[in-house]
Design a protein around this nucleic acid. Structure first.
Lengths: 100, 100
DNA sequence: GGGGCTATTTTATTGCCGTAAAATATTTAT
DNA sequence: ATAAATATTTTACGGCAATAAAATAGCCCC
C-alpha cells in the first residue's frame, strides 16, 4: 500500500518539522518530545530517532540546548522558527496544488 | 538545509499522488506525465522515474493501461481514486496539526 | 541492592525509492 | 538519410534517514 509507505516515510522524514513545532510551545528534552510526538501527531519513532534529529537540528543552528537536572533541554532558535514557517508553507503549497 | 532535503525527498516520494492527481483529469502516457509534473508541480523527476512509478501503480491496481499509437496510456482506477483521496486527506491532516 | 523506567550517546546497519545505465523502436524535423 | 526528439523497458546501483545495537548513568520503589 503506497499510502502506508507514505505515512511511514513522510511522517518520519518530516519529524524535524513536528519537533520544531512542538518546541515553539516550550523547551523540551528529547525523551519528552518522543512522547509528545506520539500523543499529538501519532508518530512512533524509534527510541533514538529524536536524539539523532535534534543533534542534526542543533548542528545546523535551528535549535539550541542547555542541561538541567540531567536532561538536555532544547529550544527553537530564530532561524529554526523561520525554517518551520517555510516548511509549513511548503506543505500547504503541496496540498493546494493537489486540491485545485 | 533540511527544507531542501524535504523538498527533494517529499516531492519525489509523493510522486505517485501527483501522478494519480493528473490522471483524474484525463488519460496520459508516462512521457507526457513527466512534462506535466514539471509544468504543474515543479517536480523534475528523472526520465525513467514516471515509468517505474506507473509500473508500481499498475501492479497494485491503482491505474490501468492501454496501448494506442505506440503510446501506453494510463487511466486511474476506482481504487486509485480512493487512494488519492486518502492521500490528500492525510496530507491535509498533517498541515492541520502543524498549523493549530 | 536490584529491577525497571527515564534519559542520552555513538556507531553500524538496513530498507527503500529514485536514478543511472543500457538497450530499443518510432517519429519528426533538416 | 540521418540526427534529434519522443517513448518505453529492465536491471543494477547509490544515498540517506530512520533504526538497531550496545553502552552508560541517574532515579525510584519494593
Amino acid at each position: 500500500m503506497p499510502l502506508e509507505r507514505l505515512k511511514k516515510k513522510t511522517s518520519k522524514e518530516i519529524l524535524w518539522i513536528y519537533i520544531l513545532r512542538l518546541l515553539t510551545e516550550r523547551e523540551m528534552y528529547a525523551y519528552e518530545l518522543k512522547q509528545k510526538l506520539q500523543d499529538r501527531f501519532e508518530i512512533f519513532p524509534a527510541r533514538v530517532t529524536s536524539y539523532v534529529v535534534l543533534y542534526r537540528l542543533e548542528n545546523e543552528g535551528y535549535v539550541s540546548s542547555r542541561w538541567q537536572e540531567n536532561k538536555k533541554y532544547y529550544k527553537i532558535t530564530e532561524s529554526g522558527k523561520a525554517l518551520l514557517d517555510e516548511g509549513i508553507k511548503y506543505l500547504e503549497g503541496i496540498v493546494d496544488k493537489l486540491v485545485i
